[in-house]
Write a protein that binds this DNA or RNA. Structure first.
Lengths: 156, 156
DNA sequence: GTATTTTGCTAGTTTATCTAGTGAACTTGA
DNA sequence: TCAAGTTCACTAGATAAACTAGCAAAATAC
């Protein structure tokens, strides 16, 4: 069992502390997302979908209903209803896929972006405040670490 | 609006990249949690509760039903049913609170820890693999940054 | 050119959440 | 001191959101 792994050196200790820090961050993010869910009056999956769309948009990746189902691990039926809700409340639109006529591209509305950042903006400000005091070299290391971590736990 | 903030220096650029890395990590964690949900055959809130309990246990913090409701931002009624489910499936027990007879302390069962780490262990191994190549000094910076981030977005 | 797979959808069912309200236990303040 | 207000977990019943099964249309494989 992984938890029974025992640190054998100072370096191992520091690695372990880092893993704890990651889990603490995960916990804090859970709470942050819970808070946004409450503030925005949305349910947890709808908000998670919004977050996903925001991030994919920044990466210029198109998102299909299938992608959402896979991301959230819900059925395609639930995804249809989820999109019905988000479309009805004006958060997203369904666009035709450019080359596959079966498929759809889910796009955020301006209102969606605005409302998301109206609530997320304060957190963004706080996070920037945390990052700013660090040197470029340090931030470089931090970003790289996080990037590798993302890739490790969710291979592209 | 926070997104319209414009970087004015190299340092600002690196800060911005770091914020993107944080969101990418958040996205990857969402997917990881979605995967665990599927693998463990649990719903998303039940699993989030398990994660919370694991982390609080490591910090030696007792967790009440009220704490869970606050963490997930669900009603006390939903929390009761959630705990009913987790108790019925043998993941947690309800213990009397030592000093407040109205309250309860929610405790993980051994089975719960085992099953969680059976599924989470692989991710833990991957994360350790990512961390190991970094120097102690670098990991120190990374841990500190993550700690400050956690504190910023979810003040204790 | 037919067969298989993939995509998003509908219908009906099950599960999980909510609101409203309760009794018991704790806390506060006159 | 003890009455009033608050907090805690819970129940009941209503609402919302997930699931399974199955479908037609389009794409891909054979």
């Amino acid at each position: 069992m992984a938890e029974r792994w025992m640190p054998a050196s100072d370096h191992d200790m520091v690695v372990m502390r880092t893993l704890h820090a990651i889990r603490a961050l995960s916990d804090a993010m859970d709470r942050m997302h819970g808070g946004m869910k409450g503030d925005m009056g949305m349910n947890i999956t709808d908000l998670a979908t919004l977050r996903m769309l925001i991030i994919r948009e920044q990466r210029e990746q198109a998102v299909s209903p299938h992608d959402i189902a896979e991301h959230l691990r819900i059925s395609s039926a639930s995804t249809t209803k989820l999109l019905d809700r988000l479309v009805a409340s004006g958060y997203v639109t369904r666009q035709p896929h450019p080359s596959d006529r079966r498929s759809r591209v889910v796009e955020l509305t301006d209102r969606s972006r605005q409302e998301f950042f109206a609530h997320f903006g304060e957190y963004l400000r706080l996070m920037r405040q945390v990052a700013t005091p660090y040197s470029q070299e340090e931030l470089q290391v931090i970003s790289q670490f996080m990037g590798e971590l993302s890739e490790a736990i969710d291979p592209a």
